[in-house]
């Protein structure tokens, strides 16, 4: 399915994402990496970590679309394949990979690259390339999406 090319919206959205990452580091001393912030809310917990900061961040991420939805600014977005088994399997592999590889699009892709971390640059190239190959197979060879 075609989607509209939205360079200005995307650039502006990217600027917001970058600003949030700067705010998080400046105020809380934390890297804004969603997989890291989220997975550290799961057991086993480490006592040295600031759980409340993570909960507050996650609450903010959920609160915004909730407010936008209630005020009619956004409507719901369909998945590319609605099969629950398909989505569940994709979620399992995606979640596993982000924690095993120590980061996702935000942690490695935005923050890590901005800090010129070699690990993040390598991880981002690997997950982008893998995702592109996966889309090719799932869409053009198997017709799943």
């Amino acid at each position: 399915m075609e989607t509209l090319f939205t360079p200005w919206h995307s650039l502006f959205g990217g600027i917001l994402i970058g600003s949030a990452a700067v705010l998080m580091l400046w105020g809380c001393g934390q890297i804004l990496g969603v997989s890291g912030l989220l997975s550290r809310l799961l057991p086993p917990w480490s006592s040295s970590q600031d759980i409340k900061v993570r909960v507050a961040f996650v609450a903010g991420v959920i609160a915004l679309p909730l407010l936008a939805m209630v005020s009619g600014q956004v409507s719901s977005i369909p998945p590319v394949n609605g099969n629950p088994l398909y989505l569940g399997l994709a979620g399992l592999v995606m979640g596993y990979g982000t924690v095993r590889g120590n980061g996702c699009t935000s942690g490695h892709g935005v923050c890590g690259i901005s800090r010129l971390s070699q690990r993040s640059i390598v991880a981002t190239l690997v997950f982008m390339a893998t995702a592109a190959v996966t889309v090719y197979i799932a869409r053009h060879l198997l017709g799943w999406i």
């Binding site: 398909y86 994709a90 592999v93 995606m94 990979g97 982000t98 997950f127 893998t130 799932a138």
Partner: peptide
């Protein structure tokens, strides 16, 4: 390997 798993799940969904 983590980045590969992540890429597969990200690409699928």
């Amino acid at each position: 390997s983590g980045a590969i798993f992540f890429g597969v799940g990200w690409g699928l969904s």
